[in-house]
Design a protein around this nucleic acid. Sequence first.
DNA 1: TGATAAACTGAACAGTGTCAAGATTAGCTT
DNA 2: AAGCTAATCTTGACACTGTTCAGTTTATCA
Lengths: 200, 200
Amino acid sequence: MEKPAYHHGNLKQVLLEEALKFIETDGIKALSLRKVAKQAGVSPGAPYHHFKNKDELIAGLAVRSLEKLDATSEAAAQGQISPQEKLKAVGKAYILYAVENPEQFRLVFSSEQSGSFLSQPPNEAPLFRVLYKVIEELEAIGLVSNVQVAAITAWGLVHGVATLLIDGPLQPMSTDLEQVNALVEEVTSGLIYVQAAPKR
Amino acid sequence: MEKPAYHHGNLKQVLLEEALKFIETDGIKALSLRKVAKQAGVSPGAPYHHFKNKDELIAGLAVRSLEKLDATSEAAAQGQISPQEKLKAVGKAYILYAVENPEQFRLVFSSEQSGSFLSQPPNEAPLFRVLYKVIEELEAIGLVSNVQVAAITAWGLVHGVATLLIDGPLQPMSTDLEQVNALVEEVTSGLIYVQAAPKR
DNA sequence: TGATAAACTGAACAGTGTCAAGATTAGCTT
DNA sequence: AAGCTAATCTTGACACTGTTCAGTTTATCA
């Protein structure tokens, strides 16, 4: 009969899902807790039994997005054998995730909940962990001298191109997936040479 | 006597300034048009005679910030002679502007008003113009083959490191200006090698 | 001087996040 | 199985938000 019970059952998950739907269709600025509650068939006060406030709901989505980005990056790396190709694959996966899921990608770096990164030790933090492993492999072959700098440079390049594509001057290009692919191909090729830069 | 006149005189400018103050102290999320109006000694409806809505006020600040970033980048380039040093100087100026004025930097790329970039032809657009000139100089010496790709790569790297510093995992480092300088020095050194990458 | 337009006020509206008091029910304990 | 406790949800309220609109004030210029 499915008559809605007083106790929803798994409201928390439903709230997260409905909130994400709103974000993806109307953007994060149009997100309203009340609308989310109504969509979930629940009163405006109900969400506060599962989230401290609106920001915490959003933070929950950010963590989910971070995990997805981390997972696809890792999968991309494992699909290759040489460390050069791994690095390239990670970069491509990262940028494509941003272009295909701009709202979710923005969530991860939305400046309010940057605590997602700080909470864990750097070597175990999501994203960093994937990158670190690959760069260490490059170091082992002598293609990288300073792992720390190389990781930041690689991440910086890839992250920068991603955000220029979704929020910057490259935005008009971001709808044409073929063009994006070509660009990403060229840019990530440069990645390897960045790492191979001589010491002085 | 300075008794506040009914016609404020230069309300538009004052609104922009007060809004910026709020943003810099409490962050953009806490910005309220009503508070800005009150701070300017004016009623809640007054701003609407100068801006279509709140977003347009913010867009005004974004344009100002873009101009500042453009100006300091250009100045940095002109302080150097060799194109390699110019590129490096632009990168440093860009990242330092972001670290020293994070709120204003974010404004420029805040996804709502990305139209600032699209409105002008790419070669005359702010920021791009500066970068383009330098990269063309590098091309003239044979250090760059594809100007387009080189520009995007350079901008991407610098922009990525900047946002990783203010909104990403490098945030804890961003308060220590000395550490930031060291990092920027190393990363921008890599810039030149990125451009010097062989064609295939 | 007088008319037109610009600038500003004050009140109102719908919508927001958030909280407290009370109703409802799930789940454990005896 | 009964009853108690804690979790969950509702209802109603509060302060605040962006925005609009009718009316008031003043600058500007013919």
